[in-house]
Design a protein around this nucleic acid. Structure first.
Lengths: 231, 231
DNA sequence: GATTGAGGTAATCGAATGATTACAAGATGG
DNA sequence: CCATCTTGTAATCATTCGATTACCTCAATC
């Protein structure tokens, strides 16, 4: 007894043996699950089996669909970078049309970045990619994505290098505090923790806290915390 | 009639017999080696055998000396945090005595932080600890250390929260770019890379580059790249 | 109603790795 | 000299995990 469990689909409670789904859809499901698991445990720390369970399929399928764990992670990283860049491009386009000043644009970009936390996996996978520079394929992708971001802020948004560095720096602190699970300590003894969080996340603190703490649909880890096959 | 086995042990016995060293000294050697290896490959990605080889001893000794890989990493993290805090305390004390303005002090703190790159393991182990929040013991140590740093900047250095956040943010970008090995790409095609690096590391760019690239005595990885026991 | 091919998994393999055990050799003190 | 403690290792164990293989089961098409 193992697999089969979970899956209490609406109209079919008893069985739900395994509904066959097109490979394209499975691919998206796996990528979404992998984003959560990799973001939570890092590239090396996450296992393909955890991803599989979070996606509700078997471990060999994950490997066969992407060829290897490394290729899966690179794809996750690629998607995360793409999502981030798309969000920024949209903000820039909209802000240009509205005739915003530079600091208004930067504020909006910061807000858009914080909003990405809605899918915690995105920013955490990014962060895990940044510190996994030891793996050649991952490091290359991470660096390329980071520079694409820099170039976007420079050439499309039109910021000065010093401003961009400030912006990126705050983004990295943002990521680090979330990766460190500092949010969970908001109500701990140290009164400096709320202060640090308030001055880092500012107007977005509530969103961040609700997402990171509440996390109603973020079942990735829960589903992945069971054991592998039979027990 | 080769007399066989003409051991040319002339001047170089090729085998360092094994000089017995006090446990206290070994402990320091292991911690230094572990700092490099963990910083390079992360907590999960590094192996106790890589640490052992970097320290020039056997793998079981590493485990026995620290009890477990996790305890070793926590100790490495603790040392790194201690080194950082000590460096900052020294700068603050000295700056107070000199009657510096706040921004002069902050500049000096930034310089002191950058100087820590001389031992690349320190900052990289810190960073790896920050993103390893999934491991309870490591996350707790990382958060506590981070808050100790914040408190120091707030209560001893006397900075306003917003200033501290700026400072920490730039530190995190600093760490991230090094973890990403962006320095290695300084001479690549993208002309934005030198620009980003220049505006992030500013006056310390040369030191950072010399340390991260040159790394003459940073043998940690090289020595650790062999296989385990006999060959 | 066979064939075929795509979705999907159980079983398992082999390598890696943290940890443990048993033992060896040099110091140290009486 | 002998007992004992310390430093250190070889051998090996038990897991874990990514990958592979061999198979199963539908669904569509001829």
């Amino acid at each position: 007894m193992s697999s089969v469990t979970s899956e209490q689909m609406t109209t079919d409670p008893a069985k739900a043996p395994q509904e066959r789904v097109s490979a394209a859809v499975r691919r998206e499901q796996i990528l979404a699950a992998a984003s959560g698991v990799f973001g939570e445990r890092g590239y090396v720390g996450a296992t393909t089996d955890q991803v599989a369970q979070a996606a509700g399929i078997s471990q060999p399928y994950v490997v066969r669909m992407f060829g290897s764990k490394e290729r899966l992670f690179v794809e996750v990283l690629d998607r995360a970078l793409g999502t981030l860049l798309d969000a920024f491009r949209a903000v820039i386009a909209e802000s240009k049309q509205a005739g915003d000043e530079q600091d208004a644009l930067m504020t909006k970009l910061g807000a858009a970045y914080a909003d990405l936390i809605i899918d915690r996996g995105i920013l955490m996978s990014l962060m895990q990619g940044f510190v996994a520079g030891h793996e050649p394929a991952i490091g290359a992708k991470a660096r390329a994505g980071f520079m694409e971001l820099y170039t976007l802020l420079r050439n499309e948004a039109g910021f000065e290098p010093d401003l961009i560095v400030d912006f990126l720096a705050h983004g990295m602190l943002f990521n680090t505090l979330i990766a460190m699970r500092m949010i969970d300590q908001h109500d701990s003894d140290d009164p400096c923790i709320p202060e640090l969080l308030a001055h880092t996340f500012r107007t977005k603190l509530d969103i961040v806290m609700n997402t990171v703490l509440g996390a109603p649909e973020q079942q990735a880890t829960a589903a992945a915390s069971r054991t592998r096959t039979t027990e």
